[in-house]
Computed example of a mutant assay.
Amino acid sequence: MTVTIWIDGRRMECCGESFGAGEVVAWQLVGAGAEDHADVVGGRRAAEIDFREERHGGAGEEAVARVKVVEVEEVHCRYAFPPGDTSDGRRAVPGTTEFVPVSGADRWVEERPGLEFVGYLVTAEPVAG
């Protein structure tokens, strides 16, 4: 059985913890709903996400899980201010997301023209114990 985990790109920038396929890691995980990341990865891929890694609270110690990383994908998309939006926040532009398979994740992601690095989708297997 595998699970899909969302790793926010900002977590990598601030914490710099790298991981790669085949490694066993211990992450604090919280459940993710299909709507949580649909704006960035699209509805179909968002429905695949079981958990998100939580670094700054919001989950109890019991939520720490050991998993073996099977696959890693970088997620990149374009952000823009929606037409007529008067807020100060940019939004992910639907249909611009690119998924890039990589062997591992670290603090340094190769830039993709016109896109911003957003995070990682990690396929993993739970490890007992």
Rank of each mutant, 00 (worst) to 15 (best):
V75H: 08
E61W: 08
E62S: 15
A65W: 12
E98G: 00
G89L: 04
E98L: 10
D85K: 00
V75N: 03
F81N: 01
F81Y: 00
V70N: 07
G89H: 10
V64P: 03
C77S: 14
A59P: 01
H76I: 00
E98V: 15
V67R: 03
D88G: 14
G89R: 08
S87I: 11
Y79L: 07
G84C: 08
P94K: 02
A63I: 00
P94D: 04
P94H: 10
R90S: 04
E74W: 02
E74A: 04
D85R: 00
A80Q: 07
T86I: 07
D88Q: 13
V70R: 12
V70D: 15
V67M: 12
T86G: 11
T86Q: 07
A92W: 06
R90G: 01
G95S: 14
R90P: 01
V72I: 04
V69E: 02
E98Y: 01
R91I: 05
A63C: 05
P83N: 02
E98M: 05
V93N: 11
E73F: 11
V67G: 08
S87W: 08
T86L: 14
G60P: 04
V69A: 06
T97G: 14
T97Q: 13
A80R: 07
Y79P: 03
V67W: 07
G89S: 02
E62Y: 13
R78K: 10
T86V: 06
T97M: 09
H76P: 05
P82N: 11
A59Q: 13
K68E: 15
C77Q: 07
V70E: 15
T86Y: 01
G95K: 15
G84N: 09
C77T: 01
V72Y: 07
V93I: 12
S87C: 12
E98K: 14
V72P: 12
R91W: 12
P83V: 00
E62I: 11
D85H: 04
V64T: 13
E74Q: 06
G89E: 03
E61M: 06
G89I: 00
V70A: 12
A59L: 08
H76Q: 09
R90H: 00
V64E: 05
V75P: 08
G95I: 07
T97N: 09
E71F: 05
A63M: 03
E61N: 02
E61F: 05
Y79D: 08
K68Q: 14
G95L: 09
T97S: 15
V70C: 10
E71V: 03
V93A: 11
G84K: 12
F81G: 12
E62A: 15
A63W: 00
G95V: 11
A63P: 03
D85S: 13
P94N: 07
E74I: 00
T96A: 11
P82F: 00
G89D: 03
V69G: 03
A92I: 01
G95W: 13
P82W: 05
V93Q: 12
E61A: 09
D85L: 06
S87F: 06
S87D: 13
E62D: 15
E71L: 13
A65P: 13
V70L: 15
A65F: 06
P94G: 10
E98P: 06
V67K: 06
E98F: 01
R66S: 13
D85A: 04
V70T: 15
Y79E: 07
A59Y: 08
D88P: 06
A59I: 00
T96S: 11
D88M: 13
E73A: 10
V67P: 05
A92K: 01
E74K: 06
A65E: 14
